[in-house]
């Protein structure tokens, strides 16, 4: 179910921990699996558990505990907008409202073209740059409706290197 590259990456993660502590690599293995498949279908969670010789339910416990795992399909770009207090004080509600209006979908939903998902998340640890969101591997900071519009345009245009 996973590519050679993903398996190799999991093996590298596993090597960080004592040999009898394969379970330590579970968080990483789930992340790597999710990166390859876009989300974590149940069969994939079980497969990952098998890789590390763990009971499936143990992997499932972890996959449902941490908020960064998606157990359902999400869009190519998942806008994780922080709604915690510092971002809230700096207008995160407005940012979320703007996104929903702009993309025509609600919180937790994905646009029909499969490009965008909007999610509200708790504190991202970048409060001085509020309002912020996490977008894949990066943070987009001091969001404004205007900066978002530009970003959405660029992403629609296929540019996913934009900051």
């Amino acid at each position: 179910m996973l590519s050679e590259a993903s398996l190799a990456e999991i093996a590298r993660e596993r090597a960080k921990y004592p040999p009898e502590r394969a379970r330590s690599a579970l968080l990483a293995a789930l992340r790597i699996a999710q990166a390859e498949h876009g989300y974590l279908p149940e069969t994939l969670v079980e497969y990952v558990a098998g890789l590390l010789e763990l009971p499936a339910i143990q992997a499932f416990e972890v996959a449902t505990f941490y908020s960064m795992y998606d157990l359902r399909p999400v869009g190519k770009y998942k806008f994780c907008v922080c709604g915690s207090v510092s971002c809230f004080l700096n207008g995160s509600d407005g940012i979320l409202a703007h996104l929903q209006e702009r993309l025509g979908v609600g919180l937790g939903e994905t646009t029909p073209d499969g490009l965008f998902t909007i999610a509200e998340v708790e504190c991202l640890g970048a409060c001085k740059d509020a309002p912020v969101m996490q977008l894949g591997d990066r943070y987009v900071e001091t969001l404004t409706p205007e900066s978002l519009d530009v970003l959405i345009g660029q992403l629609r245009g296929g540019r996913d290197d934009v900051r």
């Binding site: 149940e42 079980e46 009971p55 499936a56 339910i57 143990q58 499932f60 416990e61 449902t64 505990f65």
Partner: peptide, 20 residues
């Protein structure tokens, strides 16, 4: 000796169940 039930989810969403 075999883990079949687990507590999935967190906080008030934590629930006991088997793998799917």
């Amino acid at each position: 000796g075999i883990m079949e039930l687990g507590a999935t989810g967190r906080g008030e969403k934590m629930a006991i169940g088997t793998y799917v």
